[in-house]
Write a protein that binds this DNA or RNA. Structure first.
Lengths: 229, 229
DNA sequence: TAAGACGAAATTGTTGACAATCTAGCCAAA
DNA sequence: TTTGGCTAGATTGTCAACAATTTCGTCTTA
């Protein structure tokens, strides 16, 4: 029978988050209540609750009487996200390296294989999502749910940031093997080396961002911003 | 005049959070919608939104059809909170020491004076709130709003944890001067020493927690938990 | 007395109608 | 052509009534 219980606000959140992680929902996209209602087959109440939760995670921005749009992190936001990721992930990676069992490492290797497969199959959306998930998987080995949840937020933010400021627009700013080498170091129990690889990995991604204005509209904004000194 | 705009869900959140920080709202306290409606003079919609936000911050727990109660963090939650605080606050303190201007340090000193005054006046609720606020003030010097917000959550959690597992029940587990010595080290620009003081400070608070069951009801829970091995 | 069943009251969950606000298209005037 | 104002439609915000569920007191019965 499978009563097919209706979607809850968590389901809606997860769906939207996943689309953001896959970069199929671009920053600035307007999310109207009615369209989401019909998409998920739920009432406005559920959508509204989802919006509230997503606002808390900085995934959408909610403006009074104007609705919800996918968040557009500023360059300063981007700086803070990477700074926070470096602090958190290095600490969590240290714990993870201590805790990791052979089984855990096997799961990480399996995940790496998935990543590579998605890349070969040119399934970019899947590859982007898997790349993000890798960091979340890693963090879960640290046995600290609070920090995991926060890092998860940061990973979603990173996806938005790359969509906005990524050089190639979408994908290939992972020049290669960073994730593999990281797991190698973990397997050798060398937390310091793993941490260094991680920091370098994040710094490399951050360094590839370009913050110049792109459209004419954004030009106007920056002009007026600098004119108000 | 003064149209006295109604409270928003953020106002309600802040009020509840402040009460938690002051330990005037004990963990496990039931929060009924109607009572909060009449207290704040708002509709149920607003209270409901506030509940949703507070749930996200682990300040209340929301059970389907049963309503909201102030959260009761488990011992494992407590461990994670302190672990996360040590990671985050040490990193933020490092940045804060770099950034701190003479003016910033003066504000911190002023805050310390407030703390001492509240303690002398035996205004415990105020003292507890100020003690928590000190860590938030400190973190704000790090210029990372994201990490600040997360730390703020952790500080509120700490308040709940101390209310639950604090040895003396309420207040005086700050044996003295830790905050002062921390600012001293910052003023000398010695981030490492400041970090050490901070870690020791947090570890000291954590070490004073006692996780034995207190009420008969909690006895039952632990008994059944250990019986199921 | 204690356990269980029942029902009324209280509390939470959901829905839909209505109000408030914003958006877009149109028209008129400079 | 551009600017400004205006109206109609669309979108969001609020509220109150109703439905579903829980809670608590009472009563019965062993």
């Amino acid at each position: 029978m499978s009563k097919s219980t209706a979607f809850t606000e968590e389901d809606v959140c997860k769906a939207i988050r996943d689309r953001v992680l896959e970069q199929r929902l671009a920053p600035g996209t307007k999310l109207t209540e009615d369209s989401l209602c019909s998409i998920f087959g739920v009432g406005r109440t559920t959508i509204r609750r989802a919006f509230l939760l997503l606002t808390r995670d900085n995934i959408i921005e909610l403006q009074k009487n104007k609705g919800a749009v996918v968040a557009t992190p500023s360059p300063e936001d981007a700086r803070q996200v990477f700074e926070a990721r470096m602090v958190l992930e290095r600490a969590m990676l240290e714990k993870a390296t201590e805790n990791a069992t052979a089984d855990d490492l096997k799961r990480l290797r399996a995940h790496l294989a998935d990543e590579e497969q998605a890349l070969k199959a040119a399934d970019i959306a899947r590859w982007i999502r898997l790349t993000g998930k890798f960091h979340i998987l890693l963090s879960q080995l640290s046995k600290n749910d609070l920090m995991c949840n926060f890092l998860e937020q940061l990973v979603f933010q990173t996806s938005l940031i790359i969509a906005l400021y990524g050089r190639t627009g979408a994908a290939p700013n992972c020049k290669g093997g960073d994730h593999e080498r990281l797991v190698d170091a973990m397997e050798r129990g060398n937390a310091t080396e793993a941490g260094d690889i991680l920091i370098h990995h994040l710094a490399s991604i951050e360094s590839q961002l370009v913050f110049e204005a792109r459209s004419g509209e954004q030009d106007l904004h920056t002009i007026f911003a600098t004119a108000n000194d």
